[in-house]
Design a protein around this nucleic acid. Sequence first.
DNA 1: AATTGGTTCTGAACCGTTACGGTCACTTCA
DNA 2: TGAAGTGACCGTAACGGTTCAGAACCAATT
Lengths: 362, 362
Amino acid sequence: MHSRRPATLASLAAELGVSRTTVSNAYNRPDQLSPELRRRVLETARRLGYPGPDPVARSLRTRKAGAVGLLLTENLSYAFRDPGAVRFLEGLALACEDAGQGLHLVPVNPERADVASVHRAGVDGFVVYSVPDDDPHLAAVLERPVPTVISDQPDLSDVDRVGIDDNAAMSELAQHLISLGHRRVGVVCMRLGSHRNDDFATVERQRNAHFHVQRARLAGLAGAFESVGTAWSNVPVVERFDHTIAGGATAAAQLLDRDPQVTALICTSDILALGALEEARRRGLRVPQDLTITGFDGIHAAVQAGLTTVDQPILEKGREAGKLLLNGPDPGRPRKVTLATKLVLGNTSGRPHTAEERWFGP
Amino acid sequence: MHSRRPATLASLAAELGVSRTTVSNAYNRPDQLSPELRRRVLETARRLGYPGPDPVARSLRTRKAGAVGLLLTENLSYAFRDPGAVRFLEGLALACEDAGQGLHLVPVNPERADVASVHRAGVDGFVVYSVPDDDPHLAAVLERPVPTVISDQPDLSDVDRVGIDDNAAMSELAQHLISLGHRRVGVVCMRLGSHRNDDFATVERQRNAHFHVQRARLAGLAGAFESVGTAWSNVPVVERFDHTIAGGATAAAQLLDRDPQVTALICTSDILALGALEEARRRGLRVPQDLTITGFDGIHAAVQAGLTTVDQPILEKGREAGKLLLNGPDPGRPRKVTLATKLVLGNTSGRPHTAEERWFGP
DNA sequence: AATTGGTTCTGAACCGTTACGGTCACTTCA
DNA sequence: TGAAGTGACCGTAACGGTTCAGAACCAATT
């Protein structure tokens, strides 16, 4: 009984001797028929096991699905594994529940370029979160005749976008480190391309990164440090494909092995920074006395750990993206929303050792 | 251009002078037409801005939506706020991505009984997670002619279910406490009904709780303690409607104010237990020397905090629910999957003070 | 010459609904 | 008393596809 669809609106109408329109109205516009007839319709429906108008057929006719699609470049389950993604989704969910809209997570296989899932999603619009510039799924989304809002990346000129000023935010963080006296630093960043490169990233690779956000953050760092005379090409930048604490730890290790003289490890995400903290502890390096470590994002665990980081309003980003998609009556000009960030000074950043201290102790 | 639908399969066919079938085949069954014609179809599609077959129309015809619906009783955003829910969803997402299915989160307003969102969701089946026995949304789901799997609660005899043995698991935890010597205990539990009662719960209220899981856990406790002579009606049970750490803290306070002699605080969730820990710290009570505190669930933060708790495989529950829904060719008999739990002995449980210790110190 | 088999394409039915523009009987009001 | 209104219901035409049983054609076999 729970798996057959015995009755349709038409068969119900036939049984009752009324038109399909009337049955439809019984469900959707109670004021269009007499209470008595409506009662009879509903009662007969119950008797025949008619579950009410089919949602898909209704969607086809009304041209609305009652749901927004979410595309992210990782596996579907990543959405629930990464604290940042979870926070973004919470915000998006808030916008959806306000509007009574469902949230349809599109399954993506990052391995194969299987765009079919994008074509199969019955949604009224898409929110795209943090995908690479050249993601084929994104291209598929943009081909669909529904509104789209991109968050974080990429920044396409003719598509709505909500994000932060990654360059400026990272630059501000860099200024902080510079003012503390750091000149010789290392960087741990997230993936810069679609293929795995768990290694150092050349300046060229940084410039050509397929991820707008990482590109902007690195550029912010580069600009700040260049301006005080640190040649960026000498700054080691290690990349990690997987965004995990363990990855941050091994990246930090790789960096410290290459140049034990660095006084600060700048990570482009909190997750990576938490890994770096682990590695520092493992090596017996005191933070921040022996090594400064910074993150980016302002996730809960990082703030709790006292990390110096950039707090960005991830939840609001999700909510804003949802609002833009749902409330916006689709104006002509693409909308660009840039939210504010805040530098959070934790206890993982401090003055580097002076040369003397380095040799003779503080 | 991104918001109009200029072309349809039919108009494309007309333009090309072929039948609609052929165009459809070009997308869905490439082997059914010559490569040359297919190329022409696809190229003309691009020229006309045809985005490919409409997903909703396709769903109507094929009778499959390519997505599973998720119903939970709280606001949509709660799914991303509660660590347990997030973990469950991660598991469910794993099952979905394996099957290439989308995940459609149904927006629910716990205030109004707005069942329409359930009727509007175009999905091939539902997973229902932890809703009360009498939830109207659940009733609406069961009326829909699609398969359904319920996780945790409620346990309806004719619906697939995946869960744990809450009664036995809690009983095992109780045995542990009993063997340590605890006889005078207090309990903090989650909501037992649909209306708010942030207060003590009578035995009757416990028995009639609309949440199967809470009912079973309390019953497990009651059984164990009754069997060693502790009259359950004397055991104070405090209920909290909102599942938050802050709620756990105030509940613990309420309990300790009522009976400062309790030697253990048993919480039916880790979140509540983390709150209880906070309150104990606030009062200067040492855990476990002065007070034993236990949780339930085995979420990350709890294990990290060294909480004595019951570890339940939340992720596997989600994944199993998804698999049941997606792989199962709908056998006649409803399937019941019960996963194993594991008692985790942390450092928040210990022997209670003896009478002498209580008065004269250990 | 008739049969067989394979490829390529088509016609028509069907999926289950809602939007739109009526009709019809029955007041109401001047 | 006739015109205008109102409430209740209906017929038709989409909505945009997929599917299945053939038709048409051609080459190869009997």
